[in-house]
Design a protein around this nucleic acid. Structure first.
Length: 595
DNA sequence: AACTAATGAATCC
DNA sequence: TGGATTCCCTTAGT
């Protein structure tokens, strides 16, 4: 049959359809058929299948439509990245997702076997090769504790599933009341929870209008909590009443209002937007005006709005410190609540300061970290731009930097290059880290940034807790453990997980006095205790897991205190939701990857 | 079951 | 320097 073509049959570019010929799942007969088809070039008008020979003589460049299965990461055929069951198979074309060096994948990464600094082979684990160890781990499902000297909270004691309506961003234990946990979320809401009374849940929704980045208790008043938010304010909240005042506001013209200094610019842009949307305006009227305004707020606004991330209190000097997303440090006097002096540029201009920490013993020392890949040590007596005492260099953004809790002689940093670093000012110097521990805590825009934190109870200042990003296949379930690491050896002391928690837990806080771990995973909060303690003290008490939210009250969509966007302000006071008791084993938190 | 949205940093030019 | 583009193991929704 002669090919039916347009324009004489020679001008139109041919279309090559590539099909998958290497699928290992398909049977051999299917494979042959597909391979046969692969050879066939079709014309765009394709009424026929036999034009291959003729079309291949065309001088036009062929348009190739590939139906081959390709890797979703590198878009190349022959392999596929993604979950196979509960095990994630990496794209071999990319550097290792764990240690970021090319040539291998996470499955065979030496750091997956031994987290110690340098590539220490896994001989200490009784395996001859890393593959052996991975194999052992897949079968054995648990890594035995390396030491028994630490009491690790490894069993879920109680929890509220969907405590928050957005993901948890920070946690803080009450300084004197052992059973009160404070939690902040991406919406700016503040949770106050006595985890002895699992069913009672208090959430303050009117303090901040978006992300609560950090919390800090007043050193002089246990009932007062400071909060730093991306709405550009530092709040001071009375926990009993929920009444809050703003100590610092970097967006005095309002979170959702136009900056007066830039009114001209905005008006100009507003004009343009009006032109763009004039068609809409004519047709849809009011709706389009709202749309224009939304464009203004979300595209223009956030580039000028200031957000506060870092927060700490300098007790000796009576100062409250905050730092914003443009690299500036702000200082307020806690007695007068007045901002002192001018903002100081402490990180690269325009880059976010992700954290602040005051030295536990020396009031003159301040530690900061930021998106400019540095953690910096400052002398509070003389803080001005480029006057840092030490600059701790990292390869990527530094999520957090903390002085060790007792002596303050060590600094623990978490960087997005998948490394936890320890900088020792006594046994080393701050020019280079005394230890680097490869650990999976990558950046993911949908996750709260991971922050490795010291155990405040550990007098040796060696135990650190941090959530893990990559999953491990535990009995057919992909779980993301919470890791306990001994920073002196670099060894994994314990990995804590529960088959019912399939979501990642980036936010973790160890109790200042008790063997208790609080973790925030997605919108839920979990309280962990050591298994032995749990069994001896409360043999009859079942684990209390409470479910909140949509499924509970048959609500459609979101919480009743939800607004449609994350930037909208809550206008509600405290609330205590009725919650349903849920046996832990009935339903996992997070629903995927159970095979 | 198969989609989608939310949304932060790096990279490129 | 800034805008467009991309991105890898998300999660909870429709």
């Amino acid at each position: 049959m002669a090919p039916q073509t347009r324009g004489g049959g020679t001008l139109f570019p041919e279309v090559v359809i590539e099909r998958d010929s290497e699928s290992e799942e398909t049977s051999s007969s299917e494979e042959e058929q597909e391979e046969h088809e692969e050879q066939v070039a079709e014309e765009k008008d394709d009424e026929n299948m036999g034009a291959g020979a003729e079309a291949s003589t065309s001088t036009k460049k062929p348009i190739t439509i590939s139906l081959k299965k390709v890797c979703k990461v590198c878009k190349r055929p022959g392999h596929e990245a993604g979950f196979k069951g509960a095990t994630y198979i990496d794209c071999p074309m990319k550097p290792c997702f764990l240690c970021k060096t090319p040539g291998h994948t996470t499955l065979t990464c030496p750091h997956r076997v031994a987290m110690e600094f340098g590539v220490v082979p896994a001989t200490s684990r009784g395996c001859s090769s890393s593959l052996d160890y991975v194999f052992e781990r897949q079968l054995g499902c648990r890594v035995p504790a390396m030491k028994t000297s630490f009491s690790i909270p490894n069993q879920v004691h109680c929890a509220v599933i969907r405590y928050h309506s957005r993901r948890v961003t920070c946690l803080e234990f009450h300084p004197t009341n052992n059973h009160i946990l404070l939690s902040g979320d991406k919406k700016g809401q503040l949770g106050v929870w006595d985890f002895r009374k699992v069913h009672e849940r208090t959430v303050y929704g009117n303090i901040h209008s978006c992300i609560l980045n950090n919390m800090k208790f007043s050193p002089t008043n246990d009932g007062t909590l400071y909060g730093a938010s991306s709405d550009g304010t530092i709040s001071c909240t009375d926990l009993e009443t929920g009444i809050s005042m703003s100590l610092m506001n970097l967006n005095p013209s309002g979170w959702q209002e136009i900056d007066i200094e830039r009114t001209g610019l905005y008006l100009l842009m507003f004009e343009n937007i009006n032109v763009l949307y004039s068609h809409y305006i004519l047709e849809k009227g009011k709706f389009a005006w709202r749309l224009s305004l939304l464009v203004l707020l979300f595209q223009i606004g956030p580039s000028t709005w200031r957000m506060i991330y870092g927060l700490d209190v300098n007790f000796d000097r009576g100062l409250l410190l905050g730092a914003d997303n443009f690299g500036f440090l702000y200082i307020a006097d806690m007695r007068s609540n007045n901002v002192i002096g001018k903002p100081t540029l402490i990180h690269k201009k325009g880059s976010k300061v992700t954290g602040l920490h005051c030295h536990p013993l020396q009031p003159d020392l301040l530690l900061s970290c930021g998106n400019d890949h540095f953690a910096r040590v400052w002398d509070m007596r003389m803080v001005e731009a480029k006057s840092s005492i030490y600059d701790l260099s990292h390869n990527r953004v530094v999520n957090s930097a903390y002085f060790s809790p007792r002596s303050g002689s060590k600094i623990l940093t978490t960087s997005q290059d998948n490394r936890i670093r320890v900088w020792d000012s006594i046994f080393g110097n701050l020019d280079s880290p005394s230890r680097e521990i490869v650990h999976s805590h990558d950046f993911n825009r949908h996750l709260t940034p991971f922050r490795a934190e010291w155990d405040p109870k550990d007098t040796s200042e060696s135990l650190v807790v941090v959530g893990r990003y990559i999953s491990e296949n535990y009995d057919g379930i992909a779980l993301h453990p919470i890791d306990f690491i001994d920073i002196n050896t670099g060894q994994l002391i314990a990995e804590v997980m529960d088959p019912n928690i399939t979501t990642i837990s980036p936010v973790n806080k160890l109790h200042p006095r008790d063997d208790v771990l609080a973790s925030g995973s997605s919108r839920s909060i979990f309280i962990w205790r050591p298994k032995e303690e749990f069994e001896s003290k409360q043999p009859d008490d079942k684990r209390k897991i409470v479910l909140c939210g949509k499924n509970d009250n048959k609500r459609k969509g979101k919480f009743e205190d939800d607004s449609d966007d994350d930037f909208g302000g809550g206008k509600h006071g405290s609330k205590s939701l009725n919650a349903k008791k849920l046996p832990l084993t009935s339903k996992p938190h997070g629903s995927k990857r159970i095979y």
